[in-house]
Structures are given as structure tokens and as C-alpha cells.
Design a binder for these strands. Structure first.
Length: 180
DNA sequence: TGTCCGATATCCT
DNA sequence: GGATATCGGACAT
């Protein structure tokens, strides 16, 4: 059920698309918080100007991007919001997928439609930096065989990266399922 | 040590 | 559509 390393070490665009419909699971105070992933974005350094690893930039913050696929890259933006990313592909390929939204399984009334809200909903913070999704006891991703058609995946430009210039801010590396 | 600014959310018009 | 709160990290000094 839990996704294994093989899933995450595939090319990043493939992982970003295939994460849609998978279930993010968080164990918090002996309870499970679960949500169907419905929105992702791919960040493919070093060529991608919108990526933190553009031109192989390597800092304390983004070091985990250089890991193998399947680890959490989590960081704070705007001084108040955490963002959950999953590393992908091979070691020394600084690529990742930003998890932007889920459809909550447990509490369907709540809208989890943004990376900041998502981290609040799943109780995620900096302590998850570098967490291994294939072995962690408090966060992982499951394949519950939720199916949808390829044509139901909408592709759009990524959000909030106008600084990356005309080409990279417009490339359609954001993937959304709208059926949920 | 200081300055700049963001992979957002929310409220406003 | 636009403004802005808010603060740690990146990088220059």
C-alpha cells in the first residue's frame, strides 16, 4: 500500500502526475489524518529558474533536494507558511514536487486548497525536514487505487513564481484533478 | 550584522 | 484585480 522508493525515483514530471489520486497519510496523536492529493507542481533544478536549486544552488535550506526521491523537503515562506515538497528522481538531481492541495478523507467539510493550509491540516513543520516517506512512522503516501481518467488532469502554469521570467513562470508544470 | 524578499492566505475594492 | 502581514534564510557587507 505505502509507496516505495521505486515510485519516487522516477522522472519528476511523471511523479508529479502520478501523485494525483494517491493518499497522503499522517499519524498524529495515534490518529490518522488522510487526504487525496489533487494538486501538485514540479520543480526541476538546476535548469528551472523557479526552483530553489536553480543553477545547482546548494544551501542548508535546500540540501534535501539533492537526496534520492522519497524524502520531505519542507520550508517556511512569507514568514508564516510551511510548504511540503517531496524529493524525486536520483541523488544529485535536485528535483521535487510541491504538494499543493488534498481532498480530506476524514473531514470533508474542510477545504485544503493551498500548500500553507495543507501543512496546517496535516500538522507539518520543520521537524519533517528530510523525513523519509518510505520508512517514516508519522507520514507516508499510499496507493488506494483511486482511479480517474488522464483527461481529468488539468495542466496549468505554477503559482506565485512570476519572478522566474516568461518561460519558466508559464510552463505548465502544475497538475490538478478537479473531480473531487 | 544588515538588508532584501518570498513556491501564501486573506481581506479589500 | 491589488495590498499586506510577517520572519527566517540567503547573501552582501
Amino acid at each position: 500500500m505505502r509507496l516505495k522508493r521505486e515510485f519516487f525515483i522516477q522522472p519528476t514530471l511523471k511523479v508529479a502526475k502520478e501523485l494525483l489520486g494517491k493518499v497522503l497519510v499522517r499519524k498524529y496523536q495515534k490518529k490518522l489524518i488522510e487526504g487525496i492529493i489533487i494538486e501538485t507542481e514540479a520543480y526541476i533544478g538546476p535548469k528551472d529558474k523557479a526552483s530553489h536549486s536553480y543553477k545547482n544552488k546548494f544551501t542548508q535550506r535546500n540540501i534535501v533536494e539533492y537526496f534520492l526521491g522519497g524524502f520531505c523537503y519542507i520550508y517556511l515562506v512569507y514568514g508564516m507558511y510551511w510548504q511540503l515538497n517531496i524529493t524525486t528522481f536520483l541523488a544529485n538531481k535536485p528535483e521535487c514536487v510541491l504538494i499543493r492541495a488534498v481532498f480530506p478523507i476524514s473531514e470533508k467539510k474542510i477545504l485544503v486548497n493551498g500548500p500553507g493550509k495543507l501543512c496546517q491540516y496535516f500538522k507539518l513543520d520543520g521537524s519533517f525536514f528530510g523525513e523519509d516517506l518510505t520508512t517514516s512512522k508519522r507520514i507516508w503516501i499510499e496507493d488506494k487505487k483511486i482511479s480517474f481518467k488522464d483527461s481529468e488532469i488539468k495542466k496549468t502554469p505554477r503559482i506565485g513564481i512570476d519572478y522566474a521570467g516568461k518561460y519558466w513562470s508559464k510552463i505548465k508544470w502544475r497538475f490538478v484533478i478537479e473531480k473531487f
